[in-house]
Design a protein around this nucleic acid. Sequence first.
RNA 1: GGCGACGUGGCGGAAUGGCUUACGCAGCGGCCUGCAAAGCCGUUUAUCCGGGUUCGAUUCCCGGCGUCGCCUCCA
Length: 452
Amino acid sequence: MLSLYDTATQGIRPLAMRRPGHLSVYLCGPTVYGPPHLGHGRATLVYDILRRYLTWTGVQVRLVSNITDIDDKIIDRANREDRPWQEITHKCEDIWFRAMSALGVERPTDVPHATEYVASMVDMIATLVASDRAYTTSDGVYLSVTSVDDYGLLAHQKLEDMLAGGGEREVLGAGEKRHPADFALWKLSKPGEPSWPSPWGDGRPGWHSECVVMSLELLGEGFDLHCGGADLRFPHHENERAQAVALGKQFAAHWMHNGFVVDAEGEKMSKSLGNVANLLDLVEKYDPRAYRMLLLQTHYRSPVRVGQDNIDAAVKALSGIDAFVARIDAAGAVADVACLDAFRAAMDNDLDTPAATALMFDTMRRANAAADAGDVAGAASLVAAVREMCAAFGLSINDVGDVDPVMVAKATELDAARAAKDFARADALRGEIQAAGFVVETTKDGTRVRRG
RNA sequence: GGCGACGUGGCGGAAUGGCUUACGCAGCGGCCUGCAAAGCCGUUUAUCCGGGUUCGAUUCCCGGCGUCGCCUCCA
């Protein structure tokens, strides 16, 4: 049984499922107005690992992850570049899923778009207005946060304390709001802006409403888990929750947030700092599994720095796994039970992937030792366990043993030259194979060639 | 100002009231090799500072220093 840290209760507790064996998850997806950055990559990878692991343990996971395709930032960019806003959202969404696919992130079960749910959002807002939990101003409709008893549950801060800080920021719609923390449910549009009809005038929904409507509509009340980056905790998730509470609905039963990606100086990677590395660059320049590997070796709630050094280390660790799997034949072997039990114990403890990867590397060492000792069956069952762990991590294994027949022929020639003690010839052949990008291994059983 | 997190070896990054202080990368030694490389086996180096609690703290408490995040639309 998986236990996870719950932001609401600030402790690790079992992840309960409304329907045993079936997990309903909502993940806040991207606003499609620019290329995905490392922070987006971390969030999607963390939850992909969660999903893969649970699926591996036999749980049916329904993962709903939205696309925010209407937002001020999208409109700003469209105006700036004088392009239709849909052109931007379509293109960005396409790039988003290309990047995710390159990272090996499985497409969510459902991908609702905000623009498809505007009518539902209008209905929800109307309900809130009717119950006096929301009110209109000259520029839109706002939710009254003081009407929500435990507002601040996720922020772990009282309303008045929140207001004490952040003084230098400009408060949106300040003039007419009843309370500075009240947030927009509906924004009346200016001429030329995309808009939808509503009882309060043409406009567009505020950011937080879509997730409430889509999660409740697709997953139903009291769904199991709501997740996203730590920066969404407040205000986004707090405000989603506030709306659900104001509606009298049961919202997420458990809240999960992943830590940030920081830059070399330890500062949060974000657009505003202008230091973002494009996620596609990372996937194209390095082994696309590298980021996943790096994240597996870090706990999901800890900050992670993505740098040349630790990406390189991850790439090397991965090639070690590939070479290991290619070395020992585990066909038909049953995975070592004790190993997998220990693996589950680590993962079930708040998704402790660093402990789980440590276990995997230990298992590799044990398998090698068993193979060296001639324990073929023992080695095979340990290799099978490593393969299982990789599957549970969503880590694909590259088949490095699959090499060009021309190179295999050269390796055979190399062995013949060595046997004939024609070392000049052997060295030349070795050079040719290496020049073609392969690793030449000299073993007792002859020369073996694998991809590097 | 409020809230939260954190300061571990050459680097990344776990864990823990005492037991050999994980794991990855790098380094070092050995095996293997015609020589290498790769691979395998083994292995060195650490718990920010000052108090306190304790038989014993890196771990718990207090203080300090430092870092980071959130405090109204950033994963």
